[in-house]
Every structure is written in C-alpha cells, then in structure tokens.
C-alpha cells in the first residue's frame, strides 16, 4: 500500500515493481528522468531503458515501433512536451493504429510553478482526449497513481496519464477495486455535485467543508478517467442534485468541463465549469500562489457552487 504523497515517485516505483516480472515493459525518456522519476526504472533495468535525448517526437514514434514488436513502452516527459511537442507523432504513429504505447505527462497543470508558461500544461487533456483510441487518466493521489499504472500495463492501446509534480494528500481508498473508467464519490452530499479531477479533488473536498457551514450539502466525485467517460455513472451521480460543477487544473476549453457538459447536454441541470481561463501560465515562487491566481482554491470551488445554485 502506498503511503507516499508523491505521485511521480509512486509512478516510478510502480513501474520498477511491475518491470520485475513483465519483461515487455520498456521506458523511454527525454532527459527529464529525475523529474518524471523514470530514472528509478533506469537504475533497475538499464537494458530496458532508452534515453532518447531531448527529442520527444522521435521518442514517440520509436515507442510505436517498440510496441509493434510486443513491447509495452512508457514514454516520459513533462506533460506539455509529452502531449504537445509530439502531438502528430502520437496521432499518426501511435493512435491511428491503436498501438500499445503509454504516455506519461509529468509536471502537469501548473504544478511546475517556477518554470512558467512554456512548461505548464493547461491544454494536454484537450489534445489527448480528442484523439480516437486514446485513454486519458488524471490521478488525484499516489494510491490512484499506483492503481492506474498497473491498469495501464494490463490494458491494450494508448493511454495518457497526467501527473502532478507536487505531493498531494491521499484521499482515495487503497483497498477499493480499481478499473480504468472508474468514477468515485469521495464526499457525500445532496444539493450540488462537483465532478473534480487531479488536485481539484482535494480542493473540492475542502470546499465541501466550507459550504457545510453555510448549510449547502456538496457531493464530490473524483473523475480520474477523463476518457472514456462513463456517462451512465456520471448521470447517476447527478441524481437528486439541483446543479453541477466541474473542477480541473486545466483550460476550461476541451477538458473535463467540456466533456461533462457534453455528457449532460440533455439534462436540465445548471452547470458551472471551473478551470484555468483561456490564457497561459506564469512563474511563481510556489504552487499555492498559482492556485490562488488562477482561481483554483477551495474558496473558488465554493463560489462556483453558490453561483450555480443561484441559476434559475
């Protein structure tokens, strides 16, 4: 059972664990291995670790070739490069043929706070989920990260996982069964349901606490599989509530909010989408400054809940 709060360390450790018996797992890196933690695999199984240099496009297409010989390649970089820099390679070499390549977008969202807008990925979910055959995962803690990495190895086909650079408190149940597509209620509530992903799960849990004092009961659901989205389960979690809020550390365009809005298009429930506006990031001394600046704090989630309840 994971006790670490580090998602990326858990990612690396889980692959080392799985790589012991599964010799088909190979890792590829574009010189960020100490950040993505793929370096752990390099130390354990050097013959199955490919340092590809700072060349993400070649890394993605080479992974396609490795998968065509039965390997399970995991390619690693910062989310912004793993998704955007190699977009056409992922599209043409990997997803058209539904190849078994796993893509780790590390330091996702704003979590690489110091490096600024070129290194912060607020568009990776949009880019990856638009691709046919692609599965898109967004864990909220280390427990879920471990479960997801295991599920990625067991699954066939391309999967993108976005991983926060910073430690996040464990909020999911390590003893619960996991499968790709799973959506879990984290907080019980009856007035409004908040569908959250990644760090916004913890932020939404705190928001629910704030609103409890105001007599507003908030249901928080962790949507850690963005695609494929289980529409039936999603609609089930909307049962009995007056309104819906989505929360993500990603652009409000093309992410969880857009996907949920599309799934709920036939319902008459009011919906508010919380995320990063149509803009790029910026450098900051710490992560909290960015979460405050871009309106991703618990108080912002709480305000969205009040706003959506005010909709007539």
């Amino acid at each position: 059972m994971r006790t670490s709060d580090s998602l990326r360390k858990t990612y690396g450790e889980t692959l080392v664990e799985l790589g012991k018996d599964n010799k088909n797992i190979v890792l590829m890196e574009a010189d960020l291995g100490n950040s993505t933690m793929s370096s752990l695999f390099a130390a354990a199984y050097p013959e199955r670790y490919f340092q590809m240099g700072i060349a993400e496009q070649n890394m993605a297409s080479t992974a396609a070739g490795l998968s065509l010989t039965g390997k399970i390649p995991f390619i690693n970089s910062f989310a912004v490069f793993a998704s955007g820099r190699a977009y056409d390679q992922i599209r043409s070499s990997i997803t058209i043929a539904n190849l078994n390549v796993k893509i780790c977008g590390s330091s996702a969202g704003l979590s690489d706070y110091g490096d600024g807008k070129t290194h912060q990925s607020i568009d990776d979910i949009a880019l990856m989920q638009v691709l046919p055959h692609m599965t898109v995962l967004s864990p909220c803690d280390a427990v879920e990260t471990e479960q997801m990495v295991k599920a990625m190895v067991a699954s066939k086909g391309p999967v993108y996982i976005r991983i926060n650079r910073n430690d996040l408190p464990i909020v999911t149940n390590p003893n619960a069964e996991y499968h790709i597509g799973k959506m879990t209620q984290i907080v019980e509530g009856k007035d409004v349901v908040v569908f959250a992903t990644g760090i916004m799960v913890q932020q939404s849990m705190a928001a629910a606490e704030l609103l409890k004092k105001e007599g507003i009961s908030v249901r928080v659901v962790n949507v850690s599989t963005i695609k494929p989205l289980d529409k039936d389960v999603l609609l089930g979690y909307c049962d009995g509530v007056k309104a819906v809020v989505t929360a993500e550390e990603h652009s409000i365009i093309g992410g969880l909010g857009s996907t949920v809005a599309s799934a709920l298009s036939k319902s008459r429930l009011p919906l508010e989408i919380l995320g990063v506006g149509d803009c790029y990031g910026t450098s900051a001394e710490n992560y909290d400054i960015l979460l405050k600046h871009y309106g991703l704090e618990p108080k912002d989630v709480a305000q969205k809940v009040r706003d959506v309840l005010a909709v007539k």
């Binding site: 080479t62 998968s67 043929a97």
Partner: peptide, 25 residues
C-alpha cells in the same frame, strides 16, 4: 503493411523502435 505512415518524417523512428525491440528479443 507494418505500421501507419504518411505524415512524413516518422517512419525512420518507427523502424528504429522495431529494430530495438527485435534486438531486445
């Protein structure tokens, strides 16, 4: 046909991946 190609510039990388995979085996 062994892969999807057509977006130019990617086939040599795919070939390299196959070569590395075959060598591992």
């Amino acid at each position: 046909i062994e892969a999807v190609t057509g977006s130019l510039g990617q086939g040599l990388s795919v070939s390299l991946g196959m070569a590395l995979g075959l060598r591992l085996d």
